[in-house]
Design a binder for these strands. Structure first.
Lengths: 219, 219
DNA sequence: CAATCATTCAAGCGATTGATTGAAGCATCG
DNA sequence: CGATGCTTCAATCAATCGCTTGAATGATTG
């Protein structure tokens, strides 16, 4: 009896224990999207992505609904984001290999200088910062932090004029392991801007129950 | 690069996705013990338990140290308990099969009537409750809630005289899925005692950083 | 220093999982 | 109402995982 429960919980946990599925989950947590777009974002074949998404759904991490000919997947519950974030934190803390890669490719300093969510809230209330969302337009449209300016990373150098030179900028993207905001910080600093990263990203903001804006109709 | 990190995190998560390993982890979180005793507690062969424990160690969930000829395993970090508890909550919330088994075998009512940790702390401060630890003596000796009385479930009926008839009793054991305290409540109620369960157990109390007592020397 | 004991390693087997391909559902749109 | 397009199912093969068995390691004990 107890063994059955443990085995079932094991099934649920195992559904998370796969690189492709963790990546799909990261993309799903940006907002509701079709199988095809998720497959594209994660670099998987549509059939393969579909299978992975079905497993995530069976394990209760995402849910789906039919919209015309497309099936739209979205996060089952905001608490999933926190659960997954906890697992990433644990893995980064205990796995030397992950720490090494993270330290290498993301840069130790940028991590330490990141702005926490609570600090950002305080600074936003003071009106002291400009928020910069460096994700693609479609993810921005699905939802973003209130008042954020959206400039895709590859357009950043062309649109520097839109950014304030005399205010601090806080850049964010998909989450703590998303490289977009790291690169945005590097680019902007080299141009003389005052800029820091948000330590996590949009999904964590959403999961914390904080207000968001969206260009499309509410979910 | 990112794929490597995701794959490694997947490895870590997969280390948790196994019934036997979840059971071993539950026993480890009661306190430090040798491979042999853990194998016995989980009903596994020693070699098999050793392999599972090595995987849990590689994934950073437990740690080991040599003590004479025995290797003692203990939880790597109290936060592991919370992480695992979060996964169990998610699984119970989303998996109909688990909900059914839990509702069946543990009893819906007892779950609702369980005492939360914060409520228990309040009642302990009032001096209004007697704590009853129904785990085996060896687990009790490794650590227990302050002032708790230890009476193993199978001795409960023989030692009723040690329990107060006019005060509320709160029984606890290994955690929210441990049957011992459910059965203790059933036995004691049938004898006319006022008794409720703690909603979780000793490991969660420990992970919350609350004070404990132990018969052996501190870890 | 050799014997002993708990644990870990190594190899092998059966069972399960992941990715690929092609075909089948299913809801819309003309 | 049949055609279209997105998604899921089914079948396949390679790869991995879990458990068992038997030997090796490492630290103690006489």
């Amino acid at each position: 009896m107890k063994k059955i429960v443990l085995e079932r919980v094991g099934d649920v946990v195992r559904a998370l224990g796969s690189g492709p599925r963790l990546e799909l989950l990261e993309h799903v947590s940006q907002g509701e999207r079709s199988v095809e777009r998720l497959a594209d974002a994660a670099g998987l074949s549509v059939a393969n992505a579909s299978q992975h998404l079905l497993k995530l759904r069976a394990a209760g991490f995402v849910r789906s609904r039919r919209d015309g000919k497309a099936v739209m997947y979205s996060l089952a519950d905001p608490s999933v984001t926190e659960l997954v974030a906890g697992l990433f934190r644990h893995a980064e803390r205990t796995q030397a290999e992950i720490r090494a890669i993270v330290a290498d490719s993301f840069g130790r300093l940028d991590r330490l200088e990141a702005v926490s969510r609570s600090e950002l809230i305080g600074r936003l209330e003071e009106g002291a910062v400009t928020l910069l969302d460096v994700r693609p337009e479609d993810e921005f449209a699905l939802g973003h932090l209130p008042g954020a300016l959206n400039v895709r990373l590859d357009q950043l150098e062309a649109r520097l004029a839109e950014l304030p030179a005399d205010r601090e900028i806080v850049a964010y993207c998909r989450g703590p392991y998303c490289v977009l905001s790291f690169e945005a910080v590097a680019v902007l600093r080299s141009k003389g801007f005052t800029v820091r990263r948000l330590e996590d990203g949009y999904p964590e903001w959403l999961a914390a129950g904080l207000p968001t804006e969206s260009a499309e109709r509410a979910l």
